[in-house]
């Protein structure tokens, strides 16, 4: 037992890479959902309807204070009781997207509030219509501020996609688990899975940090 077997490595590599594709797919779709839904949540909180913004705040705090794994199980086990049957991957993407939307919503909020009040007042003084105030004045200043934070959440989500294996998605780690269980060799599959994560997420993290410094302060 033990030891490193290169033959086994080359045998399981195609399986792992197929799993990695699923990981990418989940991260990509989850991020798109998190970016869009997060914006909706942030705008709902700003809309100035006390009941709505209070409810959205409660929802965000609740989701952020409870485990993503339990939320994934929730989608997978509870929704069928109400006649909604989702595939594992769909449930997983929705889980990731909603969970991270509650983080991106705060990012957008901070980004919008980071634009100085005087910018709003200047836009009013120039009597710019509301939508142009947003598209020409506020967003061009807010978006660069929020990009590094959003990037960090994409990287976090990438590293959390293995949770989807709990509801039956064969992602990178799910594939490693199956490859390992088949041969009762766990050293190679899990070490390779770890290295693949490091190889992909570390350069991304360095890029985001550089972006952070440029947008900075």
């Amino acid at each position: 037992m033990g030891g490193w077997d290169w033959g086994f490595v080359s045998q399981i590599m195609p399986t792992l890479l197929r799993g990695l594709l699923v990981t990418f797919e989940a991260t990509l779709l989850g991020s798109v959902l998190a970016f869009a839904l997060g914006l909706v949540l942030a705008l709902l909180r700003r809309a100035g309807i006390p009941v709505v913004s209070r409810l959205v705040w409660l929802f965000i705090e609740f989701v952020r204070s409870t485990p993503l794994l339990v939320q994934l199980y929730f989608l997978f086990f509870v929704l069928p009781d109400f006649g909604i049957r989702l595939s594992s991957l769909t449930a997983g993407v929705i889980g990731l997207g909603v969970h991270y939307a509650c983080y991106t919503a705060e990012v957008y909020r901070a980004g919008i509030e980071g634009v100085p009040r005087a910018q709003w007042e200047a836009a009013t003084a120039l009597s710019l219509p509301r939508h142009r105030t947003w598209t020409r004045v506020i967003l061009p200043q807010a978006v660069p501020r929020v990009l590094p934070a959003l990037g960090n959440y994409v990287i976090s989500m990438f590293k959390e996609t293995p949770l989807l294996l709990a509801i039956g998605v064969i992602d990178l780690v799910g594939a490693a688990k199956e490859a390992g269980a088949g041969a009762y060799r766990y050293v190679e599959p899990y070490t390779l899975a770890g290295l693949l994560f490091l190889l992909l997420s570390y350069p991304a993290a360095v890029l985001v940090r550089r972006l952070e410094r440029r947008v900075g302060h």
Partner: peptide, 25 residues
């Protein structure tokens, strides 16, 4: 710091629980 932040927590858990025992006995 970079090694543990750069890999996934699930992988770390499975690695310690399933792979390390095969290495150290």
């Amino acid at each position: 710091v970079e090694g543990w932040r750069g890999t996934s927590e699930v992988v770390q858990l499975f690695w310690i629980y399933f792979a390390v025992p095969l290495l150290v006995g």
